[in-house]
Design a protein around this nucleic acid. Sequence first.
DNA 1: GCGAAAATGATAATCGTTATCATATGGCCA
DNA 2: TGGCCATATGATAACGATTATCATTTTCGC
Lengths: 143, 143
Amino acid sequence: MARKKPKANSCDCQGVRRSRRRDAVLDAVLASGGHLSAEEVHREAKKKMPGIGIATVYRSLKCLCGCGKVAEFIPPDGVARYEAAGSRGHHDHLICTACGCFAEAVDPEIERLQERLAARHGFKLEGHRLEIYGLCARCAKKK
Amino acid sequence: MARKKPKANSCDCQGVRRSRRRDAVLDAVLASGGHLSAEEVHREAKKKMPGIGIATVYRSLKCLCGCGKVAEFIPPDGVARYEAAGSRGHHDHLICTACGCFAEAVDPEIERLQERLAARHGFKLEGHRLEIYGLCARCAKKK
DNA sequence: GCGAAAATGATAATCGTTATCATATGGCCA
DNA sequence: TGGCCATATGATAACGATTATCATTTTCGC
Ligand SMILES: [Mn+2]
Ligand SMILES: [Mn+2]
Ligand SMILES: [Zn+2]
Ligand SMILES: [Zn+2]
């Protein structure tokens, strides 16, 4: 029978040791649909690592963002949210102002026009944030 | 000699009384180039109203945002910034990641494509936030 | 297994913003 | 021109997400 393959360290960074709690944090983000707050990640991670503290969740998320496994984004309410990154590419968010749900979208034309806009102003583009607010289909119907 | 015309209330809302401090807060925002934090507004407003407290600045800003004289936006650092609104229309921001300066821009094509993007996802668009991060011309040159 | 370095949990600290509350002020009306 | 009462104000406590601190535990190359 094949020997169980040792799982890779959830963070690749130099000097970072493997830890079961950081693994649990990554798993929680990956297993979810994304857009979890740190507190929500904490709640999920506790299912695998009951004693894990909120400080470790924050530290792990920062680490996982640093090595590109997780992406952070900060909606206008100021509470950071986390989602899987790495294999998944960049995307923008449509946020329902009624139910708070998130949809994901990329429009290549918008992306391209942003580069043009930056160039026009002499900016060397590094990144951007686009959030569209409105009513999702379900909430729009309810009204 | 013409009698001095009484200045209009800086807030039009029902039940809101005129106050010299709210006037000073509005003046501070209008006189500045915009993008001031509440603390910066406080510093400016104190030049006209030396005893004004930070709580009154926050209250005034909220009031002035409510009646459309001032616009608030919240960069990723979570610290709200304020600028003149009303006569000035919507615009997006280019933010220098080196010096923190802001540039303003509107691209009608991007605005239009955002509506299309929202429609594609069944969203009833209410608003959006677009921030472009990068190096401003000056900072790019320094490098 | 040893030991140095990294990770952890409990909790204090931070910091922008809001809530509280006693006092001051604005402005309608007599 | 007061009087009255709702609104505005300042000082300060409270809030909440996030970060810093520090004593203890865990990791992993040897
Ligand atoms: Mn997403
Ligand atoms: Mn602006
Ligand atoms: Zn919705
Ligand atoms: Zn710059």
